[in-house]
Amino acid sequence: MTADDVRAVLLALEGVEEGAHMGHPDFRVGGRVFAGLLANDTVASVGLDPDTQAGLVEEAPTWFAPAAGAWGRQGWTRITLAGAPPELARAALEAAWRLARTRSPARPRRPKR
C-alpha cells in the first residue's frame, strides 16, 4: 500500500475529510481524527478498539504495531505501508472509520488568543 492508496480508501468513505494535525495529513469524520499519515507517508496511524488492534498485530506483526505509550494502549495502531497486505490495511482503515462514526462529534475548539 502507498499513502495514495490510503487516501483513496479513506476519502471514498462517507463523511471523511482530509486535514492536517501536528504537521501530518489526518483524516476526520464528525470532526474527530481517526487516521493519519506519518513518517513521510510511509506509515498510517489508525484509531481502533483494543481488540481489533490485538487481532491485527497478532495476524500481521510485520505491518501492524501499537502506537507508543498510552496512545497504543487506547487502540492507536501503526501500519507500515510498504508490503502491507491490502485487504488487512483496508479492513483496519474501515474499522477505524466505523469506530469514529459511533463517537459523538468533536466539540468546536475555541480560537487561540
Rank of each mutant, 00 (worst) to 15 (best):
A54L: 05
D26R: 08
P61C: 12
L81F: 08
H21M: 11
T80A: 02
L88Q: 15
R113S: 15
P25S: 03
D26W: 01
L88V: 12
T77A: 07
P66I: 05
W76C: 02
G23Y: 01
V33P: 00
P50R: 06
L99K: 09
G69Q: 05
G47N: 10
F34C: 05
G31I: 08
V9Y: 05
G72Y: 04
L93A: 00
G69W: 03
T52H: 06
R7D: 12
A67N: 07
Q53I: 11
A89F: 03
A92D: 02
P25G: 02
L10N: 13
A39D: 14
A65E: 12
V57K: 02
W76L: 09
G55L: 06
L56V: 13
T42Y: 00
L38A: 08
A100G: 01
L88G: 12
R109A: 14
P111F: 00
F34E: 00
T42V: 08
T42Q: 14
D26N: 15
L81I: 13
A3E: 03
D49K: 12
G15H: 05
A8W: 03
H24W: 01
V9K: 01
L93E: 02
A70N: 13
P108F: 01
R101P: 11
L11T: 15
R98K: 05
D41A: 07
L37M: 10
L11A: 06
A12C: 04
V6N: 04
P61T: 06
L48K: 01
P108W: 04
A20L: 02
M1A: 13
A12R: 08
A20V: 14
E59S: 15
P61E: 13
R78A: 04
G36R: 14
E58N: 02
F27N: 09
F27A: 11
V46I: 03
R109K: 15
P50W: 04
G75M: 10
L37W: 01
P25N: 03
A8P: 12
M1K: 07
A65V: 07
G36Q: 06
A70C: 07
A39P: 05
W76G: 08
E18F: 11
F34W: 02
E59R: 15
G47I: 00
G47Q: 04
G19N: 13
P61A: 13
P66Q: 10
L93H: 00
G31V: 05
A84T: 05
A92F: 03
G36A: 10
A82N: 06
G30K: 12
L11V: 11
P111T: 09
R90D: 12
T80E: 02
L93Q: 00
I79H: 00
R107M: 03
L48M: 09
V33R: 09
A95C: 14
R98Y: 01
